[in-house]
């Protein structure tokens, strides 16, 4: 304990202790799975012994069987690939536009006065209301779907970009003035990292909204993708496949969110208060 006696280190605090991961994660998972598990069990019993039309409510076993068949035939992978590709492309365009416009509005007062009011008006228009217009302009092809997804992903990140750039600590901006930061350093050492927490939570929202918009886009008419699989099953009377689609949308949505959350944790390691 000689280090304690050293005057220099008297005020030093050790880094925050790392959480014990494994047991925590499994316990968390067990608790989270408890309720869905019970519902699933009740559902299976109800469909097996109750009087219920399997066209309206297929049993979990039937859904699992449909999932198995679709997976084995490779159909699910193909449709999922199409959906993921679409979502990725649309979200990418939406996020790129959001970062560019958000940076402009966040850093320039003129741009804020000129652009932001119109953006706010567009933001409050429901995407389902614009979707028919987009289809009218871009047709039923791939373009309209990408545009619908991009619009969905755009606004959360646009707003987050503006707010987080404006929220950069003014006291640090003063330090940058005293140290005579150049333009490039101001962006890379002050504004970007200062805005990063807000940008990442904006990105997380943007990806969630992009994924939600994918459902809208595909259910409005598509020749491929999970949404297509679902509407096709609807017209051909395969309710189990619709459930498989819902399941895939939910699980993929959660996985995407988990991915961004993991990146967030990595990038924001420097933050004291960050707790997931």
């Amino acid at each position: 304990m000689t280090q304690q006696a050293e005057p220099l280190r008297s005020g030093w605090r050790p880094p925050l202790a790392r959480r014990t991961w494994n047991s925590g994660v499994w316990a968390h998972f067990a608790w989270a799975a408890l309720l869905p598990g019970l519902i699933l069990l009740g559902w299976q019993l109800y469909t097996a012994y109750g009087e219920v039309n399997p066209i309206l409510l297929p049993s979990p076993a039937a859904i699992a069987e449909a999932l198995g068949t679709l997976t084995a035939s490779g159909e699910l992978a193909v449709q999922l690939g199409v959906s993921l590709g679409r979502a990725a492309l649309g979200t990418l365009y939406g996020c790129a536009a959001a970062l560019a416009l958000g940076t402009l509005v966040g850093l320039s007062r003129l741009a804020a006065k000129l652009l932001d009011p119109s953006m706010q008006l567009l933001r409050l228009t429901p995407s389902l209301a614009i979707a028919p217009l987009i289809i009218l302009w871009f047709g039923f092809g791939e373009t309209s779907k990408i545009v619908i997804i991009a619009t969905g992903a755009f606004f959360p990140l646009y707003l987050a970009t503006i707010q987080s750039l404006r929220g950069v600590d003014g006291r640090l901006t003063e330090v940058a003035r005293v140290l005579q930061f150049g333009r490039a350093q101001q962006l890379s050492r002050l504004l970007l990292p200062g805005a990063m927490p807000g940008l990442l939570s904006g990105l997380r929202l943007a990806m969630a909204y992009g994924w939600l918009s994918l459902v809208v886009a595909e259910l409005l008419g598509a020749q491929a993708g999970i949404g297509y699989l679902m509407s096709h099953a609807q017209t051909n009377g395969h309710p189990a496949i619709i459930f498989v689609g819902v399941l895939v949308f939910a699980v993929m949505g959660k996985l995407i969110d988990l991915l961004v959350a993991t990146v967030e944790k990595r990038v924001l390691r420097w933050r004291d208060s960050y707790a997931g």
Binding site: R171, E174, V175, R177, V178, Q180, F181, Q185, L190, R271
Partner: peptide, 29 residues
């Protein structure tokens, strides 16, 4: 005429960049 590195300034709070390590904070730009 304005702030600059010839006039070093220490504020009441350290005002370090929380995303940079000690050595990178010193190097800054």
């Amino acid at each position: 005429r304005g702030p600059g590195i010839d006039k070093g300034f220490i504020f009441q709070e350290p005002r370090l960049f929380p995303w940079l390590t000690v050595e990178k904070n010193i190097a800054a730009d």
